[in-house]
Simulated assay, not measured.
Amino acid sequence: MIVKMLHDAGLRSEHAYLGAAASIGLSLASWLASNRQENLERADRWGIFVGEWAPTFFGLGLALANYERTDGEQLIDSQ
């Protein structure tokens, strides 16, 4: 399971949520930078491309939070 592998590697739900928030800011920054150097259509594509990372990170954060909650419950049940 990918979520278990990521959790075992040290990735926590808070990290994924921070990545989502950062990608929203990065989306705005990339749009502004691209808008100054290129045309509006190209700037919009860059902003949307980077902005689509946020839902992925939020989903990953939810999956990790769910795994962390159920993993903690299993530890309590086994004691």
Rank of each mutant, 00 (worst) to 15 (best):
Ile48Glu: 06
Tyr17Val: 11
Glu73His: 03
Leu62Tyr: 09
Ser78Cys: 00
Asp71Lys: 07
Asp44Pro: 00
Leu40Glu: 11
His7Cys: 00
Gly59His: 10
Ser13Lys: 14
Gly19Ala: 13
Trp31Tyr: 15
Phe57Lys: 02
Asn66Thr: 13
Glu41Arg: 15
Ala9Thr: 08
Ile76Asp: 03
Asn66Lys: 09
Ala54Arg: 03
Gln37Tyr: 02
Glu14Ser: 12
Ala21Thr: 12
Asn39Ala: 05
Leu6Arg: 04
Ser34Met: 13
Leu40Cys: 01
Phe57Cys: 15
Gly72Tyr: 00
Ser13Trp: 11
Ser27Gln: 01
Met1Cys: 14
Asp8Met: 08
Tyr17Ser: 03
Lys4Gly: 02
Phe49Pro: 00
Leu26Ala: 11
Val50Gly: 02
Gln37Met: 13
Gly19Leu: 11
Gln79Met: 08
Arg42Leu: 14
Ala21His: 09
Asn39Leu: 04
Ala54Cys: 11
Gly10Lys: 13
Asp8Arg: 15
Ala22Glu: 13
Asp71Ser: 10
Leu40Tyr: 14
Ala43Gly: 02
Val3Lys: 01
Arg45Asp: 06
Gln79Lys: 04
Thr56Ile: 14
Arg42Phe: 06
Trp31His: 13
Pro55Met: 05
Glu14Gln: 13
Asp44Met: 15
Leu32His: 07
Ala29Gln: 10
Glu41Gln: 08
Ala20Gly: 13
Leu32Gln: 10
Leu11Ile: 14
Gly61Cys: 02
